[in-house]
C-alpha cells in the first residue's frame, strides 16, 4: 500500500497542529484504502465463486455433452451417466408450487396489513412475520415432517409437502417487502380514488396494487430465489427419488438436495464431485439470471411509470 507522504510528516517530538492534521489524514487514507479493498472483495466475490464453480465443473462438461447433462433422465454416476433432468424438474416443481401458494397469500395479507387491518393487528403481525422469517430451515423441515408428511395431515413425502413447507418459508419474505411497497403509495391518490366513489377494494386493486407493481415484482423474485435454493427443509420432506414428477403427489429430488446428500462422500467415483459442482453452478447461474432479469424488468417498468 502506498501512503501519500506529503509535507506534513514531521519529526516525532515537535507536537504541533500539523502532526495532528497529518495523523488524521493518514487515518483517512488508510481507512479509505481498507474500505475500498473490502468493497472490491465483495464486488469480486460473485466472479470468484463463478470461476471456482466453473473450474470444478469443467471435467464433467468436457466428458459429457451439455444436452445430455441437462435433458437426460439417466442418473448412474458409477457408469458415468449424469442426467440432471429429474433434479432440475424436481427443483422447478417444488419452487413453482411454493410460489403459486405463497404469492396470493403474501400479497393479500400484505394488502390487509397495509390498508385494512386495525393498528393493533398490524403491530401484532409484524414481529410474528419477522419471527417466521428467522426460523431456521431445519425447524421448518421438522414441522413439515410432523405436521404434513407423516403426522397430522399425512400427505407423505412429495412435491406438495415440499411446496407447502417452502411456501410458508418464503411468505414472510414476500409479505414484508410487499407491505412496505403498499405503504409507500401516497395517501392523496388513494383519497382521490375514494372521492370519485370507488369502494375500498376497488381503490386497493386499481390504485394501490397497480402503483406497486414494480415493487411486487421485486418481492416475488426475492421469494422465488429464496425458495429455489432452499435445501434442508425441502430435503427432509420431498422424498428424494430421482424421477421426473408427474403430479404434486409424486416425490421429487431437487438439485439442492442432490448436493447435500452426496457431496463429500462419493469422492471415489470419477467425475461425481465435478457433477455435483455442476449442480451448484446451475443453481448459481439461475440466481444470477433472476437478479439480472429483475433489474431489467424493474428498469423497464420504472421507465414507463416515470
Amino acid at each position: 500500500m502506498t501512503v501519500d507522504q506529503g509535507n506534513n510528516i514531521i519529526t516525532l517530538n515537535t507536537v504541533s497542529k500539523k502532526t495532528i492534521v497529518s495523523r488524521r489524514r493518514l487515518a483517512e487514507l488508510v481507512s479509505t484504502r481498507l474500505m475500498l479493498a473490502a468493497t472490491a472483495f465483495v464486488g469480486a466475490l460473485v466472479l470468484i465463486i463463478a470461476i471456482g464453480l466453473f473450474l470444478k465443473a469443467r471435467p464433467i462438461l468436457e466428458a459429457n455433452s451439455l444436452g445430455e447433462l441437462l435433458f437426460s433422465s439417466t442418473w448412474r454416476p458409477s457408469r458415468g451417466e449424469f442426467g440432471f433432468f429429474p433434479f432440475i424438474m424436481g427443483t422447478l416443481w417444488v419452487t413453482i408450487l411454493a410460489g403459486l401458494i405463497a404469492m396470493p397469500i403474501s400479497i393479500l395479507g400484505a394488502l390487509y396489513l397495509a390498508e385494512y387491518a386495525p393498528k393493533r393487528i398490524s403491530a401484532l403481525m409484524k414481529p410474528a412475520i419477522d419471527l417466521l422469517a428467522g426460523i431456521p430451515p431445519v425447524v421448518y423441515g421438522i414441522w413439515g415432517l410432523l405436521a404434513l408428511a407423516i403426522g397430522g395431515i399425512n400427505i407423505g413425502f412429495n412435491v406438495l409437502t415440499g411446496g407447502i413447507v417452502l411456501a410458508i418459508m418464503v411468505i414472510p419474505v414476500i409479505m414484508s417487502v410487499s407491505e412496505e411497497v403498499f405503504r409507500m403509495v401516497p395517501q392523496e391518490i388513494k383519497e382521490a380514488s375514494l372521492a370519485i366513489g370507488a369502494t375500498k377494494w376497488e381503490t386497493a386493486k386499481n390504485v394501490v396494487i397497480r402503483n406497486s407493481l414494480p415493487g411486487l415484482a421485486a418481492a416475488t423474485i426475492l421469494g422465488f430465489s429464496r425458495a429455489f435454493g432452499e435445501t434442508m427443509a425441502v430435503l427432509m420432506v420431498v422424498g428424494n427419488i430421482a424421477r421426473v414428477p408427474s403430479s404434486v403427489l409424486d416425490p421429487a429430488y431437487p438439485l439442492t438436495a442432490l448436493i447435500a446428500n452426496n457431496y463429500g462422500e462419493m469422492m471415489s467415483i470419477p467425475l461425481y464431485d465435478s457433477a455435483l459442482l455442476l449442480a451448484a453452478l446451475i443453481l448459481f447461474l439461475a440466481v444470477v439470471f433472476f437478479n439480472v432479469a429483475a433489474r431489467l424488468v424493474l428498469a423497464k417498468i420504472q421507465q414507463r411509470w416515470a
Partner: peptide, 11 residues
C-alpha cells in the same frame, strides 16, 4: 444474497 447456502457450502 440470492446464492443458496448449499452452493456456499459446496464452493
Amino acid at each position: 444474497w440470492g446464492i443458496p447456502s448449499i452452493v456456499y457450502g459446496a464452493f
